[in-house]
Design a protein around this nucleic acid. Structure first.
Lengths: 163, 163
DNA sequence: CTTTATGCAAATATTTTGCAGGCGC
DNA sequence: GCGCCTGCAAAATATTTGCATAAAG
Protein backbone atom coordinates (compact mmCIF):
# COMPACT_ATOMS: atom_id res chain seq x y z
CA UNK A 1 0.00 0.00 0.00
CA UNK A 2 1.28 3.40 -0.83
CA UNK A 3 -1.37 4.94 1.36
CA UNK A 4 0.38 8.09 2.36
CA UNK A 5 0.50 8.22 6.13
CA UNK A 6 -1.46 11.04 7.58
CA UNK A 7 -0.09 13.20 10.35
CA UNK A 8 -2.87 12.38 12.76
CA UNK A 9 -1.20 14.06 15.70
CA UNK A 10 -0.70 17.27 13.86
CA UNK A 11 -4.31 17.32 12.78
CA UNK A 12 -5.46 16.55 16.29
CA UNK A 13 -3.40 19.49 17.48
CA UNK A 14 -5.09 21.75 15.01
CA UNK A 15 -8.44 20.48 16.14
CA UNK A 16 -7.64 21.05 19.80
CA UNK A 17 -6.34 24.49 19.02
CA UNK A 18 -9.62 25.32 17.35
CA UNK A 19 -11.62 24.01 20.28
CA UNK A 20 -9.53 25.95 22.75
CA UNK A 21 -9.75 29.15 20.77
CA UNK A 22 -13.52 28.88 20.75
CA UNK A 23 -13.93 27.81 24.32
CA UNK A 24 -15.25 24.47 23.32
CA UNK A 25 -14.46 21.37 25.25
CA UNK A 26 -12.21 18.51 24.44
CA UNK A 27 -14.19 15.37 25.06
CA UNK A 28 -13.42 11.74 24.68
CA UNK A 29 -16.03 11.40 21.99
CA UNK A 30 -14.70 14.27 19.94
CA UNK A 31 -11.20 12.99 20.16
CA UNK A 32 -12.24 9.52 19.23
CA UNK A 33 -14.26 10.64 16.26
CA UNK A 34 -11.59 13.03 15.03
CA UNK A 35 -8.92 10.41 15.43
CA UNK A 36 -10.85 7.78 13.54
CA UNK A 37 -11.65 10.30 10.91
CA UNK A 38 -8.07 11.39 10.37
CA UNK A 39 -6.84 7.83 10.49
CA UNK A 40 -9.32 6.93 7.77
CA UNK A 41 -6.97 8.76 5.47
CA UNK A 42 -9.53 11.09 4.18
CA UNK A 43 -12.53 9.26 2.82
CA UNK A 44 -15.27 8.10 5.06
CA UNK A 45 -19.00 8.28 5.38
CA UNK A 46 -20.97 9.17 8.47
CA UNK A 47 -22.08 5.59 8.78
CA UNK A 48 -18.61 4.17 8.55
CA UNK A 49 -17.27 6.69 10.99
CA UNK A 50 -20.05 5.98 13.42
CA UNK A 51 -19.37 2.28 13.14
CA UNK A 52 -15.67 2.78 13.78
CA UNK A 53 -16.18 4.97 16.80
CA UNK A 54 -18.80 2.65 18.20
CA UNK A 55 -16.25 -0.13 18.23
CA UNK A 56 -14.62 1.70 21.08
CA UNK A 57 -17.52 3.60 22.49
CA UNK A 58 -20.81 1.95 21.61
CA UNK A 59 -23.06 4.66 22.98
CA UNK A 60 -22.02 7.29 20.49
CA UNK A 61 -24.89 8.36 18.27
CA UNK A 62 -25.31 9.95 14.90
CA UNK A 63 -25.83 13.38 16.38
CA UNK A 64 -22.43 13.47 17.98
CA UNK A 65 -20.72 12.33 14.83
CA UNK A 66 -22.54 14.91 12.79
CA UNK A 67 -21.76 17.60 15.32
CA UNK A 68 -18.12 16.71 15.50
CA UNK A 69 -17.79 16.54 11.77
CA UNK A 70 -19.35 19.95 11.58
CA UNK A 71 -16.73 21.26 13.96
CA UNK A 72 -14.02 19.68 11.87
CA UNK A 73 -15.50 21.27 8.82
CA UNK A 74 -15.64 24.66 10.48
CA UNK A 75 -11.99 24.57 11.32
CA UNK A 76 -11.11 23.45 7.83
CA UNK A 77 -10.00 19.94 8.70
CA UNK A 78 -12.86 18.18 6.97
CA UNK A 79 -15.07 18.80 3.99
CA UNK A 80 -17.96 16.88 2.64
CA UNK A 81 -18.13 15.56 -0.74
CA UNK A 82 -20.23 13.36 -2.89
CA UNK A 83 -18.63 11.01 -5.31
CA UNK A 84 -21.18 9.79 -7.79
CA UNK A 85 -24.63 9.09 -6.52
CA UNK A 86 -23.65 7.44 -3.30
CA UNK A 87 -23.72 8.69 0.22
CA UNK A 88 -22.04 11.78 1.44
CA UNK A 89 -18.42 11.27 2.23
CA UNK A 90 -16.15 13.39 4.31
CA UNK A 91 -12.54 13.94 3.53
CA UNK A 92 -9.67 15.49 5.37
CA UNK A 93 -8.86 18.95 4.20
CA UNK A 94 -5.85 20.00 6.24
CA UNK A 95 -3.13 21.86 4.38
CA UNK A 96 -0.61 19.37 5.60
CA UNK A 97 -1.38 16.78 3.05
CA UNK A 98 -2.77 17.94 -0.18
CA UNK A 99 -3.87 15.14 -2.39
CA UNK A 100 -5.95 14.91 -5.50
CA UNK A 101 -8.24 12.08 -6.43
CA UNK A 102 -8.22 9.42 -9.05
CA UNK A 103 -11.59 7.72 -9.09
CA UNK A 104 -12.60 4.57 -10.86
CA UNK A 105 -15.87 5.05 -12.71
CA UNK A 106 -16.46 1.32 -12.74
CA UNK A 107 -16.01 0.39 -9.12
CA UNK A 108 -15.80 3.72 -7.34
CA UNK A 109 -12.39 3.03 -5.92
CA UNK A 110 -10.66 6.22 -4.86
CA UNK A 111 -6.92 6.62 -5.09
CA UNK A 112 -5.01 9.64 -3.88
CA UNK A 113 -2.06 11.19 -5.56
CA UNK A 114 0.07 14.26 -5.66
CA UNK A 115 1.73 15.81 -8.66
CA UNK A 116 3.86 18.86 -8.39
CA UNK A 117 3.97 19.60 -12.09
CA UNK A 118 0.23 19.93 -12.18
CA UNK A 119 0.21 22.08 -9.08
CA UNK A 120 2.80 24.36 -10.57
CA UNK A 121 0.77 24.74 -13.74
CA UNK A 122 -2.30 25.53 -11.70
CA UNK A 123 -0.44 28.33 -9.99
CA UNK A 124 0.55 29.72 -13.36
CA UNK A 125 -2.95 29.57 -14.73
CA UNK A 126 -4.43 31.28 -11.69
CA UNK A 127 -1.81 34.01 -11.85
CA UNK A 128 -2.41 34.51 -15.54
CA UNK A 129 -5.97 35.48 -14.71
CA UNK A 130 -4.85 37.70 -11.88
CA UNK A 131 -6.03 35.28 -9.23
CA UNK A 132 -4.24 34.53 -6.05
CA UNK A 133 -4.53 30.77 -5.71
CA UNK A 134 -5.68 29.55 -2.32
CA UNK A 135 -6.53 25.95 -2.87
CA UNK A 136 -7.71 23.60 -5.55
CA UNK A 137 -9.50 20.38 -6.15
CA UNK A 138 -8.68 17.95 -8.88
CA UNK A 139 -10.48 14.75 -9.66
CA UNK A 140 -9.63 12.37 -12.40
CA UNK A 141 -12.24 9.84 -13.40
CA UNK A 142 -11.23 6.76 -15.26
CA UNK A 143 -11.24 3.04 -15.30
CA UNK A 144 -8.90 1.30 -12.92
CA UNK A 145 -6.61 -1.52 -14.06
CA UNK A 146 -8.69 -4.23 -12.47
CA UNK A 147 -11.89 -2.89 -13.95
CA UNK A 148 -10.31 -2.66 -17.37
CA UNK A 149 -8.74 -6.06 -17.20
CA UNK A 150 -11.73 -7.99 -16.08
CA UNK A 151 -14.37 -5.63 -17.42
CA UNK A 152 -17.28 -6.05 -15.13
CA UNK A 153 -15.34 -8.34 -12.88
CA UNK A 154 -13.75 -7.68 -9.54
CA UNK A 155 -12.78 -4.16 -8.68
CA UNK A 156 -11.04 -3.27 -5.43
CA UNK A 157 -14.38 -2.60 -3.87
CA UNK A 158 -17.67 -3.44 -5.45
CA UNK A 159 -20.53 -1.53 -3.95
CA UNK A 160 -21.35 0.65 -6.75
CA UNK A 161 -23.56 3.05 -8.53
CA UNK A 162 -23.71 1.88 -12.08
CA UNK A 163 -27.31 2.77 -12.59
CA UNK B 1 -20.83 39.84 -19.27
CA UNK B 2 -18.13 37.54 -20.39
CA UNK B 3 -20.08 34.53 -19.21
CA UNK B 4 -18.62 32.14 -21.70
CA UNK B 5 -21.53 30.81 -23.65
CA UNK B 6 -22.18 27.16 -23.14
CA UNK B 7 -22.96 25.05 -26.13
CA UNK B 8 -26.48 24.30 -24.97
CA UNK B 9 -27.51 22.84 -28.28
CA UNK B 10 -24.65 20.42 -28.34
CA UNK B 11 -25.44 19.28 -24.83
CA UNK B 12 -29.10 18.93 -25.66
CA UNK B 13 -28.11 16.78 -28.59
CA UNK B 14 -26.10 14.53 -26.34
CA UNK B 15 -29.02 14.30 -23.97
CA UNK B 16 -31.42 13.42 -26.76
CA UNK B 17 -29.01 10.88 -28.11
CA UNK B 18 -28.89 9.23 -24.72
CA UNK B 19 -32.66 9.20 -24.42
CA UNK B 20 -33.02 7.73 -27.88
CA UNK B 21 -30.40 5.10 -27.30
CA UNK B 22 -32.22 3.97 -24.19
CA UNK B 23 -35.68 4.22 -25.64
CA UNK B 24 -36.62 6.96 -23.30
CA UNK B 25 -38.84 9.76 -24.35
CA UNK B 26 -38.14 13.36 -25.09
CA UNK B 27 -40.64 15.38 -23.18
CA UNK B 28 -41.24 19.06 -22.82
CA UNK B 29 -40.39 18.89 -19.14
CA UNK B 30 -37.13 17.10 -19.68
CA UNK B 31 -36.11 19.49 -22.39
CA UNK B 32 -37.03 22.45 -20.29
CA UNK B 33 -35.16 21.22 -17.26
CA UNK B 34 -32.11 20.22 -19.25
CA UNK B 35 -32.09 23.50 -21.09
CA UNK B 36 -32.34 25.57 -17.96
CA UNK B 37 -29.70 23.43 -16.38
CA UNK B 38 -27.23 23.81 -19.21
CA UNK B 39 -27.95 27.49 -19.54
CA UNK B 40 -27.20 27.93 -15.86
CA UNK B 41 -23.62 27.52 -16.90
CA UNK B 42 -23.00 24.62 -14.67
CA UNK B 43 -23.84 25.51 -11.10
CA UNK B 44 -27.34 25.22 -9.81
CA UNK B 45 -29.27 23.62 -7.00
CA UNK B 46 -32.41 21.57 -7.24
CA UNK B 47 -34.40 24.41 -5.77
CA UNK B 48 -33.09 26.98 -8.19
CA UNK B 49 -33.60 24.70 -11.12
CA UNK B 50 -37.12 23.92 -10.03
CA UNK B 51 -37.85 27.62 -9.66
CA UNK B 52 -36.48 28.36 -13.12
CA UNK B 53 -38.44 25.63 -14.81
CA UNK B 54 -41.58 26.59 -12.96
CA UNK B 55 -41.37 30.03 -14.47
CA UNK B 56 -42.32 28.45 -17.74
CA UNK B 57 -44.16 25.42 -16.56
CA UNK B 58 -45.54 25.90 -13.05
CA UNK B 59 -46.79 22.36 -12.55
CA UNK B 60 -43.36 20.77 -12.58
CA UNK B 61 -42.54 19.15 -9.28
CA UNK B 62 -39.44 18.14 -7.40
CA UNK B 63 -39.73 14.55 -8.51
CA UNK B 64 -39.41 15.40 -12.17
CA UNK B 65 -36.43 17.61 -11.60
CA UNK B 66 -34.74 14.94 -9.53
CA UNK B 67 -35.52 12.32 -12.10
CA UNK B 68 -34.28 14.40 -14.98
CA UNK B 69 -31.13 15.33 -13.18
CA UNK B 70 -30.56 11.68 -12.50
CA UNK B 71 -30.82 11.01 -16.22
CA UNK B 72 -28.39 13.78 -16.95
CA UNK B 73 -26.05 12.34 -14.40
CA UNK B 74 -26.32 8.90 -15.90
CA UNK B 75 -25.33 10.15 -19.31
CA UNK B 76 -22.46 12.10 -17.87
CA UNK B 77 -23.85 15.55 -18.54
CA UNK B 78 -24.37 16.46 -14.90
CA UNK B 79 -22.78 15.66 -11.60
CA UNK B 80 -23.64 16.66 -8.12
CA UNK B 81 -21.47 18.49 -5.84
CA UNK B 82 -21.57 20.18 -2.51
CA UNK B 83 -19.81 23.44 -1.98
CA UNK B 84 -19.31 24.06 1.70
CA UNK B 85 -22.16 23.21 4.01
CA UNK B 86 -24.87 24.40 1.74
CA UNK B 87 -27.26 22.57 -0.45
CA UNK B 88 -26.34 20.10 -3.12
CA UNK B 89 -25.46 21.70 -6.39
CA UNK B 90 -25.36 20.17 -9.82
CA UNK B 91 -22.91 21.09 -12.49
CA UNK B 92 -22.49 20.35 -16.15
CA UNK B 93 -19.98 17.71 -17.03
CA UNK B 94 -20.16 17.25 -20.78
CA UNK B 95 -17.01 16.31 -22.69
CA UNK B 96 -17.78 18.72 -25.49
CA UNK B 97 -16.75 21.68 -23.54
CA UNK B 98 -13.81 20.86 -21.51
CA UNK B 99 -13.21 23.75 -19.25
CA UNK B 100 -12.03 23.88 -15.73
CA UNK B 101 -13.06 26.38 -13.11
CA UNK B 102 -11.33 29.22 -11.41
CA UNK B 103 -13.46 30.33 -8.51
CA UNK B 104 -13.08 33.44 -6.41
CA UNK B 105 -13.32 32.61 -2.73
CA UNK B 106 -14.24 36.19 -1.96
CA UNK B 107 -17.09 36.80 -4.32
CA UNK B 108 -17.85 33.40 -5.79
CA UNK B 109 -17.22 34.53 -9.30
CA UNK B 110 -16.60 31.57 -11.58
CA UNK B 111 -14.26 31.81 -14.53
CA UNK B 112 -13.70 29.02 -16.99
CA UNK B 113 -10.44 28.12 -18.58
CA UNK B 114 -8.63 25.46 -20.50
CA UNK B 115 -5.06 24.43 -20.20
CA UNK B 116 -3.60 21.72 -22.31
CA UNK B 117 -0.43 21.31 -20.31
CA UNK B 118 -2.45 20.41 -17.25
CA UNK B 119 -4.62 18.05 -19.22
CA UNK B 120 -1.62 16.33 -20.62
CA UNK B 121 -0.16 15.89 -17.15
CA UNK B 122 -3.44 14.48 -15.92
CA UNK B 123 -3.33 11.87 -18.64
CA UNK B 124 0.15 10.94 -17.60
CA UNK B 125 -0.76 10.63 -13.95
CA UNK B 126 -3.79 8.49 -14.67
CA UNK B 127 -1.77 6.25 -16.93
CA UNK B 128 0.96 5.92 -14.34
CA UNK B 129 -1.59 4.34 -12.02
CA UNK B 130 -2.90 2.13 -14.78
CA UNK B 131 -6.10 4.09 -15.13
CA UNK B 132 -7.80 4.87 -18.37
CA UNK B 133 -8.81 8.51 -18.01
CA UNK B 134 -12.39 9.27 -18.90
CA UNK B 135 -12.94 12.75 -17.59
CA UNK B 136 -11.78 15.08 -14.91
CA UNK B 137 -12.78 18.00 -12.83
CA UNK B 138 -10.45 20.73 -11.77
CA UNK B 139 -11.32 23.67 -9.59
CA UNK B 140 -8.95 26.37 -8.55
CA UNK B 141 -9.98 28.54 -5.67
CA UNK B 142 -8.39 31.90 -5.20
CA UNK B 143 -8.97 35.57 -4.89
CA UNK B 144 -9.88 37.41 -8.03
CA UNK B 145 -8.15 40.66 -9.03
CA UNK B 146 -11.08 42.83 -8.04
CA UNK B 147 -11.43 41.18 -4.67
CA UNK B 148 -7.73 41.55 -4.02
CA UNK B 149 -7.67 45.15 -5.13
CA UNK B 150 -10.59 46.36 -3.10
CA UNK B 151 -10.35 43.74 -0.39
CA UNK B 152 -13.84 43.23 0.86
CA UNK B 153 -15.22 45.63 -1.65
CA UNK B 154 -17.14 45.01 -4.85
CA UNK B 155 -16.67 41.74 -6.57
CA UNK B 156 -18.45 40.81 -9.80
CA UNK B 157 -21.12 39.06 -7.83
CA UNK B 158 -21.55 38.95 -4.11
CA UNK B 159 -23.48 35.95 -2.87
CA UNK B 160 -21.04 33.73 -1.18
CA UNK B 161 -20.42 30.80 1.06
CA UNK B 162 -17.67 31.72 3.43
CA UNK B 163 -18.35 29.27 6.21
C1' DC C 1 -19.65 24.45 40.54
C1' DT C 2 -20.70 26.24 35.96
C1' DT C 3 -20.89 25.52 31.35
C1' DT C 4 -20.88 22.79 27.49
C1' DA C 5 -21.51 18.09 25.36
C1' DT C 6 -23.86 13.76 24.95
C1' DG C 7 -27.44 10.46 23.88
C1' DC C 8 -31.79 9.64 22.81
C1' DA C 9 -35.85 10.53 20.28
C1' DA C 10 -38.53 13.61 17.94
C1' DA C 11 -38.47 17.19 14.37
C1' DT C 12 -36.79 18.76 9.75
C1' DA C 13 -34.98 18.48 5.41
C1' DT C 14 -33.89 15.94 1.41
C1' DT C 15 -34.63 12.52 -2.01
C1' DT C 16 -37.24 8.56 -3.77
C1' DT C 17 -41.36 6.02 -4.93
C1' DG C 18 -46.25 4.49 -6.05
C1' DC C 19 -49.94 5.39 -8.73
C1' DA C 20 -53.64 7.34 -11.87
C1' DG C 21 -54.03 9.96 -15.71
C1' DG C 22 -51.50 12.32 -19.77
C1' DC C 23 -48.38 12.43 -23.64
C1' DG C 24 -44.68 11.04 -26.98
C1' DC C 25 -43.81 7.78 -30.44
C1' DG D 1 -52.92 2.40 -28.77
C1' DC D 2 -48.78 1.11 -25.81
C1' DG D 3 -45.59 2.30 -22.75
C1' DC D 4 -43.10 5.76 -20.70
C1' DC D 5 -43.76 10.26 -17.94
C1' DT D 6 -45.69 13.46 -14.94
C1' DG D 7 -47.54 15.42 -10.76
C1' DC D 8 -49.01 14.71 -6.46
C1' DA D 9 -48.55 12.94 -2.02
C1' DA D 10 -46.78 9.61 0.83
C1' DA D 11 -42.57 6.97 2.04
C1' DA D 12 -37.84 6.42 2.87
C1' DT D 13 -33.43 8.74 4.03
C1' DA D 14 -30.48 11.93 5.87
C1' DT D 15 -29.53 15.57 9.06
C1' DT D 16 -30.66 18.68 12.87
C1' DT D 17 -32.56 19.88 17.27
C1' DG D 18 -34.55 19.82 22.21
C1' DC D 19 -33.89 18.32 26.56
C1' DA D 20 -32.34 15.85 30.79
C1' DT D 21 -28.21 13.98 32.34
C1' DA D 22 -23.19 13.48 32.32
C1' DA D 23 -18.72 15.22 31.81
C1' DA D 24 -15.11 18.91 31.22
C1' DG D 25 -12.73 22.94 32.89
Amino acid sequence: MQESEVDVDGLMDQFHAYLAKNQLKTTRQRDLIAQKFFAANGHISIEELLALTREESPRIGYATVYRTLKLLTECGLAAHRRFGDGQTMYETAGDTEHHDHLICVECGYVLEFQNHDIEREQERVARSFGFNLVRHRLELYGMCPKARGIKGGSCPNDDQQES
